[in-house]
Design a protein around this nucleic acid. Sequence first.
DNA 1: TTCCAGGTCCGGC
DNA 2: GCCGGACCTGGA
Length: 269
Amino acid sequence: QTFRWKRDGDWFEGIVFNNIVRIRQDESTIEFTSTPDDEVLVRPLLTDYLAIGVDLEQIYSSIGVDDRIISAISRYRGMRILRQDPWECLVSFICSSASNIPRISSNVESICTAFGQEIGFGDSFRKTFPTPQELAGVDEYAIRQCGVGYRAPFIADTARAVADGVPDLMTLREVPYEEALRELTLLDGVGDKVANCVLLFSLNKLEAFPVDVWIDRAIREWYLSDVKERLTRKNMRLWARDYFGSYAGYANQYLFHDRRLLGRGQKLT
DNA sequence: TTCCAGGTCCGGC
DNA sequence: GCCGGACCTGGA
């Protein structure tokens, strides 16, 4: 659920804490290189980013309340939810509305190319995601040139707000879910779905439950097929939080993945 | 060419 | 509160 990683054979290259990080894993080991900072310095940052410390088995036992979710867990066992940079995550998901993954990736990369700082050198150089201050300084039209369309004013306004410290994104990590959700949805272009993405993928709120079209289908087809009444997205989120519990966000990602990859009619295994 | 894609906002019941 | 339409853009 992040948009700047590139695959190169066994290796994946991304930008983490202003470093170009190349990473790969085999059965039991994760290997990485970083530029410009030394691996010793980056290691703890990367460990946090990858959420290595999260106890998956405990989460599986907590959310594994029915055959459907248990089946999804069996297929994607080991899949973790990243702890991304909240600012980059916020802008990325503002870009995601009524869009698609290739375009969102292109938008985010264009924003970095236009307004970020160079890192690395030689054959491999990339750009950082621009800070709130850097993005607050550019005009809405220039942001629109990145292909984001009608989302440009949302991004410009959000950049100014965050640059002014309203909200202070890092502080939201320490704040309860409901309060952080309220703060985020005050921002222009940030509704219930985008806010829940930011909460889940960057603010360490594992009960967050973003309801997009895929989750909407999955829940409707697999869990509420006998319910005729129309459920709003927000009510679906509340239902899921109640049903799956405090790690509902993990259930969300396993179901999301399953519904996208396997479709509606897959059988339980 | 027309349609649609990982929503949000706005105006009218 | 719920419902429908508009909104940039690019690929099918």
